[in-house]
């Protein structure tokens, strides 16, 4: 098992119950959709994986290590195993495509030789060849999200977490991004994607977990038809 949630609850200081007794297991190599209306707890759940949020109760394990009991100094190492893709891309506007992706390796202290090799590799992987010197403002939404995905991939993560990665994109571009995520998953990376785009989920034939008001209301295994 790669990820395990045991009776996880999250209550915010203002009293809002974001997650209510969630137990969940995710295998290596899985592709998992987290679905549910806004405020169902999807974002809270994925943020716990990279320890931006801590649960109020319960335990979370990644590769058999407790995320909850982890010391502050161990968090960077946890996060280097996780690639994160954001709805709003979170690219640095003053950096080019190449620099935005290289940034992820620079900040973990990679050598410039390794950076050059790997960045060129992931740029090809996400189909951005020729856009290396473009700034985010010069790219389309879909291209910007490809930069975001490339950045998440550079450090060879165990898991790729995507929180509404198509939320700001039109339907055609969304399908292209999904295709890219499926390819990444086929190459062996576990992918967890939070979304409320039913159209994308329906046609995918992957495992789907439905959240409502902080609870899991359905866990459809892959291949099962999801309506």
């Amino acid at each position: 098992m790669l990820v395990q949630f045991y009776n996880v609850s999250k209550i915010y200081p203002n009293g809002v119950k974001a997650l209510d007794d969630i137990s969940l297991k995710i295998d290596r190599g899985e592709f998992l959709f987290l679905m549910g209306p806004s405020g169902a707890g999807k974002s809270t759940l994925v943020r716990m994986l990279f320890r931006e949020e801590l649960p109020t109760r319960g335990q979370i394990f990644l590769a058999s290590r407790s995320i909850v009991r982890m010391k502050r100094g161990e968090v960077p190492r946890l996060r280097r195993n996780i690639g994160i893709v954001f709805q709003d891309f979170k690219l640095l506007e003053n950096k080019t495509t190449y620099e935005n992706i290289a940034f992820a390796m620079e900040v973990v202290g990679a050598s410039s030789k390794d950076i050059k090799e790997r960045v060129t590799e992931v740029i090809n992987m996400v189909g951005l060849k020729g856009k290396e010197k473009s700034f985010p403002g010069e790219l389309s939404g879909g291209e910007q999200q490809r930069v975001g995905i490339a950045r998440a991939l550079t450090n060879y993560p165990l898991i790729l977490i995507a929180d509404e990665p198509t939320g700001n994109l039109d339907i055609n571009t969304s399908h292209e991004i999904m295709e890219l995520l499926f390819n990444i998953n086929r190459a062996g990376t576990t992918v967890i994607m939070a979304t409320h785009a039913r159209e994308l989920v329906k046609s995918a034939g992957k495992r789907v977990i439905m959240l409502e008001q902080g609870r899991i209301v359905a866990d459809n295994p892959p291949g099962e038809i999801f309506l």
Binding site: F50, E52, G73, V75, P76, R77, L78, R79, R80, N81, I82, I84, K90, L92, F103, A104, V107, V108, G109, R151, N155
Partner: peptide, 17 residues
């Protein structure tokens, strides 16, 4: 702050930042 936030999420140590 956006840059710092990103660095943290990518797994950079506090001292590196």
């Amino acid at each position: 702050r956006k840059e710092i936030y990103l660095m943290k999420l990518i797994g950079s140590t506090d001292w590196f930042i």
